[in-house]
């Protein structure tokens, strides 16, 4: 039985969406701003920061922040093994992980009455 054209069109779109995600995470991520985001900016407000952006003196919410229990993960801070310039590879691995978990869960949950 041949694949209906509608299914082939769906496949083309899905492949395009995956490529877009891989290009964004793997390439465009190198051009992302490294300035603190909105929440981080608010959390650091009131503190004098070190060059690394860590609170040095003053009073701010970020002084209470603790390292994540997963801070030692090989992909921590979007770098592979802590290596510089590995953001893109880390991003690609994240895309694959999200696709595997999301795709798997949604495929299992889907209706099968059609």
């Amino acid at each position: 039985m041949s694949v209906p054209s509608k299914d082939r069109r769906a496949m083309g779109f899905f492949v395009g969406l995956l490529l877009a995600a891989l290009l964004i995470a793997g390439g465009l991520s190198y051009f992302a701003s490294s300035a603190p985001d909105g929440l981080d900016t608010v959390a650091r407000n009131g503190c004098v920061l070190t060059e690394d952006g860590e609170p040095e003196s003053g009073t701010c919410i970020a002084q209470n922040a603790q390292d994540s229990a997963t801070a030692g993960s090989p992909l921590a801070d979007y770098a592979v093994g802590g290596g510089e310039g590995t953001t893109g590879l880390a991003g690609v691995l994240g895309v694959v992980a999200c696709l595997a978990v999301g795709g798997g869960l949604f495929w299992v949950l889907r209706r099968r009455d059609s």
């Binding site: 969406l17 877009a20 995470a25 465009l28 992302a32 985001d37 909105g38 999200c98 696709l99």
Partner: peptide, 28 residues
């Protein structure tokens, strides 16, 4: 829609990596 949702998950992860500047010294 199940494959679509899986791909949308991956796409959101990718785009969340892209911080854009909003003010000097702050991004979103």
């Amino acid at each position: 829609t199940a494959p679509m949702a899986g791909l949308v998950t991956a796409f959101v992860f990718a785009v969340q990596m892209i911080n854009f500047p909003i003010l000097p010294g702050a991004s979103g």
